Simulated scan of single mutants.
Amino acid sequence: MASTSPTETVKPLLQQALPNVKGKTFTSVIVDFPPNARAMPHRHGQAFVYAYVLEGTVRSQLAGKPVRTYHQGDNWVEPPGAHHLLTENTSPTKQARLLVVFVSNTGEELKVDDPAS
Rank of each mutant, 00 (worst) to 15 (best):
V10H: 04
Q16G: 10
V67S: 12
P12A: 02
E88D: 09
V67P: 05
V21Y: 08
E8Y: 03
L14G: 02
R59I: 07
A37N: 12
V21E: 13
L62R: 09
V29C: 08
N20R: 09
V67T: 15
S91V: 08
Q61E: 14
V31C: 03
P41T: 10
Y70C: 02
V31K: 05
A51D: 02
D74R: 06
V58R: 00
T9G: 01
V67G: 03
F48D: 07
P35Q: 06
V21A: 11
N89L: 10
L14N: 09
Q46T: 11
Q16V: 14
E55I: 01
G64L: 08
P79I: 10
L14Y: 03
P80K: 06
L62A: 14
V31H: 01
N36R: 08
K11Q: 13
Q16N: 06
A17V: 14
S28L: 07
T69I: 14
G56V: 14
L86C: 02
K24D: 05
P80T: 01
R68W: 00
A51M: 10
E78I: 01
A39Q: 13
G23S: 03
Y50H: 14
N89H: 08
H42I: 01
K11A: 06
Q61H: 13
F48M: 10
S28I: 05
T7H: 11
G64H: 10
E55Y: 02
A51K: 06
A51N: 01
L18V: 11
A47G: 01
D74H: 08
P66D: 14
V29I: 15
I30F: 06
H42N: 05
Q15P: 01
A17L: 12
R43S: 13
V58G: 00
A51T: 01
N75M: 07
D74A: 14
T90I: 13
S91H: 03
S60R: 13
